[in-house]
Amino acid sequence: MLNRLLSHDLPRSRWLAAALIVILVALAFAPFLFPGAKSMSVAAKILVFILLVASYDLLLGYTGIVSFAHTMFFGIGAYGVAIASEKLGAGFAALAVGLGGAIVVSVIVSLAVGLFSLRVKAIFFAMITLAVASAFQTLASQLSDFTGGEDGLTFRNPEWLSPSFEPFENEIFGVLIDGKTITYWLMFVAVLVLFGLILRIVNSPFGRVLQAIRENDFRAEAIGYRTVVYRTLSNVLAALFATLAGSLLALWLRYVGPDTTLSFEIMLDILLIVVIGGMGTLYGAVVGSVLFVLAQNYLQDLLKLGAVAVEGVPVLQAVVAPDRWLLWMGLLFVLSVYHFPTGIVGRLRAISLKQAWKGPR
């Protein structure tokens, strides 16, 4: 049963399986295990990044396409929900209209980018997507009457997803269930289902063709596959999942702006997570997102503790200063890439395979 749920793509490593189970349980029960506004926001961001990075891995890791426009589709999903909710008022109908409109726009734009750009070589396609993403970000910043400009848009969620909504009078296991908690669990279920759908896609015959194109597109073309069609479909699917991830982020923040969804720093974060977790392994999106978001939010706090511990030691105190957390974060990622060239998931699977070969025969 589990094998079918995972589309016959098992972790193939005891350590990886254990890590995925811990992550699944921690995210499912985050409101009870990690109460507090910051910890809940971190858990929600992890969920969004798991879906966003998995959708990009479908494009980069499984098809071999380098695109810098992924955050554009991420932003389309967020802006679709925000604009519809701001113009039509709070309600599930507004969310449906916004999400539907965002999906239509993403399909049209991704089809246009795919059909007109995927015939060129990889580096030129990457540059074209970068130009399109930059143009879209500029457009979102300048259309202030429609998108809120640099200030962004703030909107209200439906009543059931509003923080003021409290369906129960008493706390449950010490936690007061409100609309924010319901929104989190809605995000958790949506990400779980959509991640399973991506897993099914990459392990289907369609996914096998994408991997064949990644390995040798000339050979795939020679045996009868229209590579441009498959690449375009991969681009559209990745854009759709990124759009859904953006809508979930907007639902959680109840705000959208150029910096929250369209900035190039988010694109760099996605690339880092894919490389650290392992390209072509969707489980890498899970492990990489957890490690990256936790480091991004708690590394500075750890450095504060370290600075207190080495207080009075001139050199060490300067090195572990909390203001230098980005330096340490960069160093950690350089070391992880150096020691895990195939990503964390790839390394764990290689170790398990090596142990299996060394076992009794």
Rank of each mutant, 00 (worst) to 15 (best):
T138V: 06
L20D: 06
V189I: 15
N216M: 14
A126Y: 00
F155W: 12
L244F: 12
S41P: 01
A242H: 01
N157C: 12
L237P: 00
R208C: 15
L303K: 05
M187F: 08
G288T: 01
I65N: 04
A122D: 13
S41L: 08
D301H: 08
S7T: 03
G288V: 07
V132G: 01
N216L: 14
G277K: 12
L240S: 02
I83H: 03
V132A: 01
I128N: 00
L282G: 02
L353P: 00
L186A: 13
E221N: 15
F188L: 13
K358Q: 15
E169Y: 05
S204F: 05
N297F: 10
N297M: 07
S204T: 06
D9I: 02
L139Y: 09
H339K: 12
M72Y: 03
R324G: 11
L299E: 04
I223R: 10
M72S: 10
Y298K: 15
D217V: 07
T183N: 07
G278D: 03
S41H: 12
Y283I: 02
A126E: 04
V345F: 07
R231I: 03
S144Q: 13
T71E: 00
V320G: 02
F206D: 14
V287T: 08
D151I: 10
S204A: 14
A350N: 11
A90G: 11
L2K: 08
L268E: 13
L10N: 03
F116K: 13
D217T: 12
L10Q: 02
G359Y: 14
A321G: 08
G89Q: 10
I273N: 10
A350R: 12
R347Y: 13
A238T: 04
F34W: 09
R156Y: 11
V132K: 00
L192K: 04
A307R: 11
G36A: 00
G114Y: 02
S164G: 13
L302P: 00
L143F: 09
I351A: 11
I21G: 01
N297E: 15
I344R: 04
P163W: 10
Y184T: 01
R4P: 03
L248N: 12
L5K: 01
L233V: 13
R4F: 02
M1V: 02
S106P: 02
G100Y: 13
I266Q: 09
P163R: 05
L192Y: 01
L199H: 08
L268F: 14
